[in-house]
Each structure stands twice: as C-alpha cells, then as structure tokens.
C-alpha cells in the first residue's frame, strides 16, 4: 500500500506491504537504520521513535497507521550536522557503551524533556523504564538526561 508521511521534517512516500511495521518502513524502505530492533515485540524499547511527538515502539506500529502523520527518529535529532543537546549529554555523561539501546533511549528522553523539561531522577527512570540496557546499569543514562535538562552540555559538531 502507498503511504505518505513526514519523517524528520521531510515528506516521504513509500509502498509497503500492509503488514509492514513502522520500523520496517524506516529501516528497509527509507534507509533509516539508526532505529534498532532488539526484540520485535515491544519489550526492549530499542526501536523507540516519536510518532506525532509521542514515544512508540516502532515494531508495534503498522506503517499504514502512520499515513499522514509525523515521525521523528534518531537521525532527525541532528540539526545542520550538530548533535542535539541530549545526544551531547549522552556523550558527556559516559552514558553510551555498546550503543544498541542508545537511539531508543535518547528518543524516550527526548519525549520526556519535551513534556517535562526539568524531570526528577525518578521521573527519568520511569520514562526510560521501557528501554532495556544491559551494559550501563542506567546510572549514567539518567545522569545524561539530567544533564540535558540542565542545558550545560558540550556543543559537538559530530563527524560529518
């Protein structure tokens, strides 16, 4: 089926099977492989993206449900090649290890900070509790979200 949607601020069109999920649309049809698949059942959160600003497990959403809607992925956070404040905060706080959970974790954090700019540590932990991480013990991830909310992060150009 043919769908039209806005992805990271740009209008995109795709022909997808009716059973295709949003993560398949992103990864296989639009080449946006920054969104990861860790389980395929909405249990690990690695595939978290924003759908009309709300965090969703993109493996649980049909691509067809996204027709006419707006999707933001990890690739959409960078602006003009520079890292977003949350991305910078993850680098600064040492919140990245293997990195496989990181894009989904950052998208959950982005959704939280958009609705709650100064969250408590408990609120951060709750907001990312659907994102599994096996490397970090979550401490530095929560640190990173706190750092991003405080706004005192590095300005990093990224590796363009």
């Amino acid at each position: 089926m043919h769908i039209t949607l806005t992805v990271n601020g740009k209008q995109r069109e795709a022909d997808v099977p009716s059973a295709a999920t949003l993560v398949e649309l992103l990864r296989e049809h639009l080449g946006l492989v920054g969104t990861k698949v860790g389980c395929g059942h909405g249990e690990c959160g690695a595939c978290t993206v924003l759908l009309d600003g709300e965090p969703v497990n993109s493996c649980l959403v049909f691509a067809a449900q996204c027709d006419g809607r707006e999707v933001t992925t990890i690739e959409g956070l960078r602006r003009n090649g520079a890292l977003d404040r949350i991305q910078n905060a993850f680098v600064d706080a040492g919140a990245v290890q293997c990195g496989f959970c990181t894009p989904g974790m950052i998208m959950s954090a982005a959704a939280l900070l958009a609705s709650n700019p100064k969250p408590s540590r408990d609120e951060i932990e709750e907001a990312i509790s659907g994102n599994l991480c096996r490397c970090t013990g979550y401490v530095k991830i929560v640190d990173a979200v706190e750092l991003a909310s405080a706004g005192t992060v590095s300005d990093r150009a990224g590796s363009d």
Binding site: L32, V33, G34, E75, L77, L83, Q87, D92, G94, S159
Partner: peptide, 20 residues
C-alpha cells in the same frame, strides 16, 4: 576521563551494526 571514541556515532544512529 577521555570521552568514548565511538560515542558520537552511537548517539546519532550512524554506528553500523550488522543488520544495518
């Protein structure tokens, strides 16, 4: 406390894992 050399690629989604 040197920053991880692979952190930027991992926070931007540019790090290429096998299935990517």
């Amino acid at each position: 406390p040197v920053k991880r050399v692979d952190a930027s690629d991992k926070v931007t989604g540019r790090a290429v894992y096998l299935d990517d």
